[in-house]
Every structure is written in C-alpha cells, then in structure tokens.
Design a protein around this nucleic acid. Sequence first.
DNA 1: TCAATTTCTTGATTTCGATCAATCCGCGGT
DNA 2: ACCGCGGATTGATCGAAATCAAGAAATTGA
Lengths: 242, 242
Amino acid sequence: MTVRQDIHNSDIPVLCQACEARHHGVCGALDPNKLVALAKTSSRRQVDAGTELIGDAEAIHSYANVLSGVVKLTKTLSDGRQQIVGLQFAPDFFGRPFRAESAINAEAATRVSLCSFPKAALERIMKESPGLQGRLLGQTLKDLDAAREWMVTLGRKTAAEKIASFLLLIARNIDRVSDPNMRTAAFDLPLTRNDIADFLGLTIETVSRQLTKLRADGVIRIENNRHVVVVDISRLEARAGS
Amino acid sequence: MTVRQDIHNSDIPVLCQACEARHHGVCGALDPNKLVALAKTSSRRQVDAGTELIGDAEAIHSYANVLSGVVKLTKTLSDGRQQIVGLQFAPDFFGRPFRAESAINAEAATRVSLCSFPKAALERIMKESPGLQGRLLGQTLKDLDAAREWMVTLGRKTAAEKIASFLLLIARNIDRVSDPNMRTAAFDLPLTRNDIADFLGLTIETVSRQLTKLRADGVIRIENNRHVVVVDISRLEARAGS
DNA sequence: TCAATTTCTTGATTTCGATCAATCCGCGGT
DNA sequence: ACCGCGGATTGATCGAAATCAAGAAATTGA
C-alpha cells in the first residue's frame, strides 16, 4: 500500500477531470490514487464510423469507456445474416472482463471517442478496489436488462412497433429524454438504415417504409435523412407497444 | 476476522456436500466458514411446474441456486404477448443482485428444486468474499452471452432454424452434450409447446409443424409428446444455422 | 461543379409464418 | 372402461414482411 497523501482536486488526472465516466461510469468507483494509476496507462482516441474495435473471436487486450458516439455490438451467422446485439452509448463501459468466449464484434457506429486502458491494468486495480468490481457488475446487469428488453422487441413486436421502440431508445440515450413530461425530442440517428434493420431483425426496405409511415402520420419529422424530430413523444410511445 | 481454524470436510454443511452449485455455482467461491454461515440461512425447497418464483415488478427478497429442473424468465407486453428472455438450468444462480429495475417474471417450467437464501445474507457475505462477487459477475456475463446469442436467433433465423437451435440448447443443458463427437442425445422437453413458442417468438402451430417436419425427416424422434431423441446431432446442427 | 457511388425510398410480387378452424391424442378422474 | 379436458397436431386461408426491381436523394471525390 502506498502512504496515504493529501489529494487535491488538481491531483485528479487532467484527462479525467471533465470526463463523464468519472462520475457515472466505472471510474466513479476509484479514489484519486487509483484513478491516477489507471490514467497513466489509459489513452484517449477518436475513431471514425465503421472502425472495427473488437474483431470476432479476437483476443481482447483492452477495455474502454465510450466518451461520445455510439458503438454497435454485432453477431453474424456464417451466411452473412447479421444482428446487432447491443449498443453502447456514453458513458458506457465496454469490453469483456475475463473470457472472450462469445464471438462478438464491436464497431464504431458513429465517430466515437474512447478512453481505453489495457486489460491487465484494469484487472490489477480491480483486485484492490472492490467497488470497481461492483460497478462492472452493475454495467453488466444493465447490459443484460437491455438485451432482455430487446428480446421482447425482436420476438414479439411488429415492424411498426420495432421502429417506434428504436426511436424511443435513441431519444432516451442521445437526447436524454427521461423527464416524462418532455413532449418532444430531436437527434441525429447514430445508425444507417442498414444498421437499424440489423438491430430490429428487419430488412432495410421495411425500415424505410415504417419511417415513412411515421412521418406521413406526423409523429416524426426527418431532415436530411439523418436528423429526426419527434413531434410528440407520447404518440411515439403509444406506437411502441408495451 | 475470525481466527482460522481447522476445517474438515465434515464441517461443510450436509446440505451443501452433494450440491452441484458447491463446485460449479456461486458457492464454489466460499471457504467452509462462509459456506456454513450462508447455509444457516438457506433452505431447500421443491416447487411444481407453473409456480411463480418472482413476480413482475415485485420486490426481491431472496436469491437461489437452481439444483434441478428449469426456470423460465419471461417478459409480457400489456396486451398479453409474452417472450421468454432466459432459461436457468442447474446449477445456475438466479435472482437479481441489487436493483430489480427490469420487470421480469420467473416461473418454474418443470418441477424445480431450489436452494434459496435471503438477499441480505448473500450481500453481507459478498462484501467479505470478493471471489463471490466475481462468480456473480461470471454468472451475469454468462446470462448476457446467452441473451445475445438468442437475439440472433430471434432476429435473424427462420422458424426451422429456431426450432433446431432450441433443441440443441436443451440437449446441451439437459443431456450435457458438450462432447463434440457425441452423435446422439435424448431428453424430456422442459417446456410445453406454448413455452417453446414464447421462447422462439413463434406461434404454437408453427412450433408443432416444425417439430413434425424434423420428425418426418428422421432428425429426431418424439415419444409421448415430451421425450425427444436426437438421432443425429450433427444433422440437427446443420439445420440450426450458424 | 458535376459525375460516380452509396444510401434511401417506393412499388410490385412472393413467401413464410400467423390466424382461423377442426380434430386428435394422452392423461387423470369417476 | 368411458368421458372430459388441456395440450398438440393438421389443414385452409390470410396477411405482414421479405424479396425483387427501379428510381430518387444524398454524399464523395475529382
């Protein structure tokens, strides 16, 4: 153990001071000492949309916090059919503690900025900070809840309901609509129509048609193919099935 | 800390000695002292198929190891559409560490025997045994992998592939077919046709038709509606998509 | 600025699985 | 044994989404 010393706010690594993950993400469990230790080995980087972050069945050497942008996790069948099995928004943690058994593929869906650190560094600090393990468990449980919620959407909802559910998911994560009396939302879609289809288990044509229908019915407006304005959130919710 | 004392095998609670969870489940992380402490508060019980174990949005007061049988986790839309979002086989741990946010419903799919302990007892021991937290994280990651694997099945596979995938899942968990050169498998279906439909995002009629087709093609045999003999596992795998 | 290419939309047709509708089978009870 | 009932199978028809097929719109690059 190092000798306990005075920790001023200025001792918090510059890198971390303005970081959202510092408070809400996994780093929130670390005291300044540990944070300094981790920050020494960590590095920020920006990657363009389409960059592969973890290849299928690849060994994983690092973990990362998503600081901005959206990362998509995909699985692919041998004949090319693809399914997005998770989306990570800031300030989600992502990477696989221990084993990399399930063949998963992580790719930047938008331009993404990451704060990544080597697997070994995190695991060492984890042994000393039980709180960190708890945060990791918390993130994993959150991912599990999201996955199960989506299983209902995939298995039991109609195409129209799937699209509405998807738009709500994005609105809640990008535009942070948690306030229930917020009537409207606006955001850029982080996914292409193809990605949306792969997320919803639909074809690109069906996605397009359902978006057109929502637009025709005045529930949303679409500008430049990417920017979506939800005119009335409760009307969208009514179409999402629940 | 208690003084370290000699621990004989006989000090392991009788309840735990023959328990599978003792080695492979969460209890494997506990030393005999901790095991005794936990065993004091735990109790075995058997429940019939159909028994509700955790109600939708109900507060959770206990955790459990599944010792035998199958527990199904379901989510239901307001209009009654249902989706099974997870199956827990022995010796899975089940229950929700912390928060019970996601509205999930757990029900015994078959006759089930459980070893359950109060939430508080487990959480207290968890603070002292970092290994236990790790096991819990491991179980959660395993559940997450399973959920994501199933998302591919729900979103991208045909009805025929879904049924084949389901039978393989059961064969691997009930008959423990992990040995890749095992050519055949046999088991009782732990789910009714209705449950299978809810697990696969299909209707009961489609499930029935696909099972009939597999039978007609000589891939499986069905006896008494419940007992399934997989004649050739590799032929079943070929139909599961991958 | 203007091809060139990719991404998205829209339309026509087909198909797979849902729905509707009878049976059929297995099982427990009297 | 017989009935009665819930669960399962089978058949006929329908419909939602997939597939096939052009185009239109946006983005890229020279």
